[in-house]
């Protein structure tokens, strides 16, 4: 094992980009549209230009990993989406804001780049529309950029999160990447450092590394038998530590953690009442992005208590 597993953002990203390609997340643009919007606003404040493209489709990784179809279409879709970025936005790095998109893009490009026959198969297929994936596009997650820009974020805070007890949920499909991620997959701390930079109080709870349980459709098929007892353990440990707010970096995790709490209470777990928002939305709040642009109406567990603690209202 001569490849370093944990590296610094400087080593990983290099120079902070002036401009990046933001990879649209299906869940992020439908379930929690305020996530995508908030991230764009935050990047604007941080001086990074965002490009998106209507010809980009779903990353098509999630249902692949549910065994919903074989790998060929997912590989070809990846070659198409990334070939598109390489051709139209030469040299731009691809930033996902969903751990799913990030993880699947990383895994699928790894397969494409390791296997010439999969790459040829995919390029042949998408070549009919003029796409060609070379394997140059680099894949990042916006959370990595936040961390690289942590000092700039600290300077730009206008609503410090003083006294707010925030717990982070990192999500498996970032931490499970074996090589070259920003932090130790077992004991990551970079979200906590970001929360501190925003003036909040990061809370370490026992099960903070624990999966949201929704990966691969188990929330559809095994909600009661596996997902709910599993999530109850996570929320119990968060509740024990007095967590007031939880952050995610994956709209999919956000669905599981936010939407499931009421159903858990119905089954006699908890009750829990912990609002769950995207880390980008939290940064947005602290950096003074207008609250209405962050779309908290999409949340099942109301965020109002947190807002009033910060002296803000939903309409601000």
């Amino acid at each position: 094992m001569n490849i370093q597993r944990v590296i610094t953002p400087r080593e990983r990203i290099g120079k902070v980009p002036d401009k990046l390609f933001l990879f649209r997340s299906c869940t992020g643009s439908m379930e929690y549209p305020g996530t995508e919007n908030g991230i764009k606003e935050v990047l604007k404040i941080l001086g990074v230009e965002v490009v998106m493209d209507p010809d980009q489709t779903c990353c098509s990784g999630y249902i692949l990993t549910c065994s919903g179809y074989k790998p060929e279409p997912a590989l070809a879709v990846t070659a198409r989406n990334l070939g598109l970025v390489e051709q139209r936005y030469d040299g731009l790095d691809v930033y996902a804001f969903c751990n799913g998109c990030f993880g699947y893009l990383s895994e699928l490009t790894h397969i494409l780049n390791q296997s010439q026959s999969y790459k040829d198969m995919s390029n042949q297929l998408v070549g009919q529309w003029g796409y060609h994936y070379q394997g140059k596009a680099r894949i990042f997650h916006v959370q990595e950029l936040y961390y690289q820009l942590i000092e700039k974020i600290r300077e730009k805070v206008v609503h410090p999160l003083t006294g707010l007890r925030v717990a982070s949920h990192y999500g498996c499909h970032y931490l499970a990447q074996q090589y070259g991620i920003l932090d130790d997959g077992d004991l990551p701390t970079f979200h906590e450092e970001i929360i501190e930079a925003l003036g909040g109080t990061p809370v370490f709870y026992k099960e903070r590394r624990m999966c949201c349980g929704y990966a691969v459709g188990r929330g559809f098929t095994h909600k009661e038998s596996v997902v709910q007892p599993h999530l109850a353990r996570k929320f119990d440990s968060a509740k024990e530590e007095g967590v007031e707010l939880m952050t995610t970096v994956c709209p999919g995790c956000n669905v599981a953690l936010d939407r499931e709490q009421i159903k858990l209470a119905e089954r006699g777990f908890g009750p829990y009442d912990i609002p769950v928002i995207d880390l980008g939305q939290l940064i947005g709040l602290a950096l003074g992005v207008p609250v209405w642009k962050l779309g908290f109406n999409a949340n099942t567990i109301p965020v109002d208590g947190i807002l009033s603690k910060l002296g803000l209202g939903k309409g601000d």
């Binding site: 299906c26 549209p33 305020g34 209507p54 489709t57 297929l125 209405w292 642009k293 779309g295």
Partner: peptide, 24 residues
């Protein structure tokens, strides 16, 4: 929801994208 936060009512995915996705 999307309208209330000032973005297009539906995520911008082109007809071309959908056609090619389906064809794949």
């Amino acid at each position: 929801l999307r309208t209330s936060i000032g973005v297009e009512p539906w995520p911008q995915v082109s007809e071309k994208a959908i056609r090619e996705y389906r064809a794949i």
